[in-house]
Design a protein around this nucleic acid. Structure first.
Length: 798
RNA sequence: GCGGAUGUGGCGGAAUUGGUAGACGCGCACGGUUCAGGUCCGUGUGCCCUUCGGGGCGUGGAGGUUCAAGUCCUCUCAUCCGCACCA
């Protein structure tokens, strides 16, 4: 009987050994070493230190760790860093609930999460740890902001913004949920016009779209980004307002239907609307503004008001009425539309409600205009009608010709429109990176000189939001001389959106202690792009678009030599935790700490990856942890017994050795190519099952060593301990085993004999049995003969 | 409406290139060892029939291609997710 398995003792022991050996640290290569081994940058999305770890973290970080350990043992120089997305609303709101200061709460959480991470045995290079709330980090973020500003890529403008009345701050469009509520707190978001800082991400819309073709990401994630960018091709066409003799452009994807425009609509927020001197119009605009975006969208009937104005359709000089209606959005296209009720269902609904004319201008390829059915769905092969010179042309060609004529006349052009908006990054909150700007009555917006960075976030008494930025209260900090003229100036009191912080953290990891620049370009170019980025789909649109934008700008600024941050992306599934024994006892949802305490880190790491494919959603149950705990103890028992009893040295290449080599091949492919972490564990389980049936045999030691070596990326502590008991050392630095091709070949195979597609017999033969002999054997089989009345036509060899 | 996915035993899932469907695990059943058991070991476990040799059915549904389909094609149903009055 071997000693019992004590997870806690073993795990603490090896965590200390690795730390003393600096096993998880990786140096930046000097020029000589850089080419000698392939590099790999494995990165998981960094956590917000606003609470404690949950089982979702357990999954992401274990995936990253398995890949890291696997790649290291396969001869790669692997960068695997960890840090803290420390600024932002989650931490600030948690601090408010807690009655503490965001900084102290964040620091406490970081301490605690770091300890949990170390207990989980994740192999991070802690010498590269960073916190986005550290002035040594955000100093360089401010520096990069100033470069963006110089290029005109950061700018300030008055704009309608989403304002969360509860959090008392502007939130990004992306942070407003479909029902119009704040992603963070659930309050209904309002619309306001405010001066805001923006990044000109729309300049990069096309590049962000095109370069998706160059990255190895799941199609679903790419699709979300494409959807978000929302490119549509069409035309911008200028309608002239007759009464004012002023042109108003509209965007349309259907220039072929221009002759069917029977009215014109402005969004209530359109800049021309406030010039309309009409009580009806102004009261409609006020009512529309009071409505939530969601209410406008959900309205059963289209509403609107006639302005008394008329627009001239540039294709036929027709005079059509101008309406204001809230079904037209201010922040898409130009905020004004030509309405073609016959071929657009929204315009159709409005026309019905206001009894406006409906004119069909395309008809199906076959058939005639059907006046009894005024609304015509877009179909393939349509032909233009009621369109003057363009009658009879196919719709697509007709549309093109119409735009070409408008272009010649200077009244329109081909145009591409994007759904993507510029990135508003001003936040009226305390806990964020200060924007290094001073406002001066003489000089206007003045950047803080590079030498004066960082602009350190001051300590203030009351950081709660009161409708204006909390930093505005810090008079000593706010009032500074203008860097340009020396006169009185006031600091910018808004802070940056945390998505700015996370747009470049992966670059800083490469050179985290640099105090002369954000990072050394050569170092960053060596490690990047990230070879494997791992994280949740919830960051598919915001963070992962912003980071791509950021890197493209840095590339244009000559600061980095690549244009995409994440060469490949693994999107992990969502982990749900059902009711478990622990949660019933403690009354709260248990997390990694509780399970690691109970079953050991190795068992929990194995379990989370064994639940199913790591890119699909899964439910964590305590039963599965029990089962995995059983496997670890079984491995422990069997390997200890082999270590104590079975002969070392020669193997006889028997079935167990063949199984061991087959398992090497399987696990290597599963981790290295397929990211099929669950089936790799199954394969090792099979090997251990066979080993336990034959633990005295000559191949037992080989099988035991193989099982331990292969399970090491998942269960590094118990693997290391067992490796030592097998008389070996430093498994973490051991080369990954290689399968011997000779042993992968099996000596006998089972051949299935099918007659008319049904299995009728099985033959055991050597793999090199010639085809004709196989057929003869199959024919000779009594069982096959019973199903053969005469000869058969076709045959297949497996 | 647009886009992306997913449907396999009691459960999680496996089947990677069209070639033995259900690996591995959970659960369950029976037996044994311990006997305090949240221990360990063994056997069995898709469904139906069986004279215990075996036979039939079976991957959401309906067709099709093929000697052979969970896998390919067509249609269809259901569920989940993202976006959505996007002109």
């Amino acid at each position: 009987m071997s000693e019992p398995y004590e997870a806690k003792r073993i795990e603490a022991k090896w965590q200390r050994v690795w730390e003393d050996a600096h096993a998880d640290e990786v140096a930046n290569p000097d020029d000589a070493a850089a080419g000698s081994e392939p590099k790999s940058y494995v990165l998981e999305q960094l956590p917000y230190p606003s609470g404690s770890l949950h089982m979702g973290h357990m999954l992401v970080y274990t995936i990253g760790d398995v890949v890291t350990r696997f790649r290291r043992r396969n001869g790669m120089r692997v960068l695997h860093p960890m840090g803290w997305d420390a600024f932002g609303l989650p931490a600030e709101n948690a601090a408010i609930r807690d009655g503490s200061h965001p900084r102290s709460l964040t620091e406490r959480n970081i301490e605690s999460i770091r300890a949990s991470m170390k207990r989980a045995g994740w192999s991070y290079d802690w010498t590269r740890e960073l916190s986005t709330a550290d002035p040594r980090y955000y100093r360089w973020q401010q520096w990069q902001f100033l470069r963006f500003l110089e290029r005109g890529l950061a700018y300030r403008k008055g704009a309608p913004v989403k304002w969360c009345p509860n959090d008392q701050t502007v939130v990004a469009n992306e942070q407003v949920l479909a029902d119009g509520t704040c992603e963070r707190c659930g309050a209904l978001v309002e619309s306001r016009v405010m001066e805001q800082w923006f990044f000109r991400i729309t300049d990069y819309a096309q590049a962000l779209l095109d370069d998706l073709d160059t990255v190895d990401w799941p199609e679903s994630i790419k699709a979300r980004q494409r959807n978000w960018i929302g490119r549509s091709e069409g035309a911008e066409v200028v309608f002239r307002i007759e009464e004012w003799d002023e042109g108003v452009p509209v965007f349309t994807t259907r220039p072929d239907t221009l002759h069917g425009a029977t009215f014109f609509v402005l969004a209530p927020e359109h800049e021309l609307v406030e010039r309309i001197d009409s009580g009806d119009v102004q009261s409609y605009v006020r009512r529309a503004a009071a409505k939530k975006t969601k209410e406008r969208a959900a309205a059963a009937e289209k509403t609107g008001v006639f302005t008394g104005l008329h627009a001239i359709n540039p294709v036929n000089d027709e005079r059509i009425p101008v309406y204001v209606a809230d079904y037209v959005l201010t922040d898409y296209g130009t905020g004004a539309i030509m309405a073609v009720p016959a071929h657009d269902h929204r315009d159709f609904e409005f026309a019905r409600a206001f009894d406006l004319p409906i004119r069909q201008v395309v008809r199906p390829a076959e058939g005639e205009v059907d006046e009894s059915e005024p609304y015509v769905e877009h179909t393939e092969g349509e032909v233009l009608v009621n369109s003057g010179d363009f009658d009879g042309l196919p719709a697509s060609e007709g549309g093109r010709r119409i735009v070409e004529r408008l272009e010649r006349e200077g009244r329109g052009r081909f145009a591409v429109n994007y759904r993507l908006r510029d990135w508003g990054f001003s936040r009226q909150r305390y806990w964020g990176c200060p924007i290094p700007i001073v406002y001066c009555d003489e000089c206007g917006i003045v950047p803080v000189p590079d030498d004066d960075l960082p602009v350190v976030l001051p300590e203030i008494e009351d950081y709660l939001p009161h409708g204006r930025p909390p930093l505005a209260q810090a008079d000593d900090w706010v009032n500074v001389p203008c860097p340009s003229c020396g006169g009185p100036g006031r600091r910018e009191t808004e802070t940056m959106d945390t998505f700015v912080d996370s747009s470049w953290y992966f670059l800083r990891y490469c050179d985290p202690h640099n105090d002369a620049e954000p990072f050394d370009r050569a170092v960053v170019d060596y490690w990047n792009p990230v070879d494997l980025y791992i994280g949740g789909v919830d960051h598919a649109t915001m963070h992962m678009i912003y980071a791509r934008f950021w890197v493209k700008v840095l590339n244009d600024l000559g600061l980095v030599g690549f244009r995409e941050p994440f060469a490949s992306f693994f999107s992990n599934g969502w982990v749900t935790t059902g009711k478990t024994k622990i949660s019933k006892r403690s009354g709260e949802v248990p997390g990694p700490d509780q399970f690691v305490e109970r079953y050991g880190a190795d068992a929990v790491r194995l379990c989370i990856l064994f639940l199913g494919p790591a890119n699909e959603d899964m439910e964590w149950t305590e039963e599965s942890a029990e089962g995995m705990s059983r496997f670890v103890r079984r491995l422990w028992r069997v390997v200890n017994e082999v270590a104590e009893g079975s002969p070392s040295g020669a193997t006889e290449n028997g079935p167990l050795a063949r199984k061991a080599h087959a398992t090497i091949a399987k696990v290597t492919d599963d981790i290295g190519r397929r990211f099929a972490f669950n089936t790799a564990i199954s394969a090792v389980m099979e090997l251990v099952n066979e080993l336990s049936r034959d633990r005295q045999g000559a191949d037992a030691r080989l099988a035991a060593e193989t099982a331990v070596s292969l399970i090491q990326p998942y269960a590094p502590h118990v693997a290391e301990e067992l490796w030592e008991r097998l008389g070996r050392e430093r498994l973490w630095a051991e080369s990954w085993p290689e399968a011997d091709p000779a042993l992968l070949e099996v000596d006998t195979v089972e051949v299935v004999v099918q007659v008319n597609g049904r299995i009728r017999d099985r033959l055991h033969v050597t793999p090199d049995t010639p085809e004709d002999e196989l057929v003869a054997l199959a024919r000779a089989s009594e069982r096959v003969q019973a199903y053969l009345d005469g000869g058969e036509a076709a045959r297949t060899i497996v």
